[in-house]
């Protein structure tokens, strides 16, 4: 697949062929990735995952299944978690992307991100292949819960009361992170790590996970991007 940097990005949206000609099969894409703008000429078949890995050298997002089933490719797209393997780069011209490499930069006061520190403290991985996707997914999941998005296990009463943050209990976290598979089976430690960042706020405590639970759900919202908005 042909991908090369180009200096002529301004006609990206008009890469259509002249009438009756075979349609062009490549176009120009501008993306803001981890705070830096990149303009690339790319074959239409290139997914965001391939663009990040093969052309921008960002190998944090992993190609596990390449079919949206494992979550290892999860990144934040315009502040929301998404499977980058199923996104055609050309369809997301102008998007803001944050990969695991960029999580530190969106952390108030500098990185690592509280979730990264919690994963280390809780030993929330073995081989580490799924970890970049787990981290990006957890950032998105906590932001969704803080913004009041329900999940399949959210109780009826909470579902019926829009506008309130959803308390990210362990069952909520397990459900919300189900799109990220871990073949080493580190799930219990992953849930503990993510729960730590909820209860610890900045997640720099001793990791006992209950020191300031009165802070309540959503206390960590400031550490995560808001759904629909750019990274905080």
């Amino acid at each position: 697949m042909v991908v090369s940097p180009t200096e002529h990005a301004e006609h990206a949206e008009h890469a259509e062929p002249a009438e009756d000609a075979a349609p062009a099969t490549a176009g120009t894409v501008t993306l803001r990735v981890n705070g830096r703008e990149h303009t690339l000429r790319t074959d239409h078949r290139v997914t965001l995952l391939d663009l990040l890995r093969e052309h921008l050298g960002l190998t944090g997002p992993k190609k596990g299944c390449d079919h949206g089933q494992c979550g290892a490719c999860t990144v934040l797209l315009d502040g929301r978690r998404a499977n980058s393997c199923l996104l055609l780069a050309v369809a997301h011209n102008g998007a803001e992307v944050v990969t695991v490499e960029g999580l530190a930069a969106i952390t108030p006061g500098g990185g690592p991100h509280p979730l990264q520190r919690a994963f280390l403290r809780r030993d929330a991985f073995q081989c580490g292949f799924c970890t970049p996707g787990q981290l990006c997914s957890a950032v998105g999941a906590l932001a969704e819960a803080a913004a009041g998005h329900p999940s399949a296990v959210t109780p009826e009463a909470a579902l019926a009361e829009p506008g309130r943050p959803v308390e990210p209990t362990a069952p909520e976290l397990r459900e919300r992170l189900s799109g990220n598979l871990c073949r080493c089976g580190a799930y219990p430690a992953i849930v503990r790590a993510v729960a730590d960042t909820v209860t610890d706020g900045a997640a720099d405590g001793d990791g006992d996970g209950d020191s300031d639970s009165e802070a309540g759900p959503g206390a960590d919202a400031a550490a995560a991007p808001t759904p629909g908005g750019g990274p905080v």
């Binding site: 797209l77 199923l86 998105g140 999941a141 329900p150 399949a152 009826e156 189900s178 799109g179």
Partner: peptide, 18 residues
């Protein structure tokens, strides 16, 4: 709420976002 429940029963968080 039936519609919310049905949507939330499908796929994963990151797929539902797209």
């Amino acid at each position: 709420p039936l519609v919310s429940r049905a949507l939330l029963a499908g796929a994963s968080g990151q797929l539902r976002n797209i």
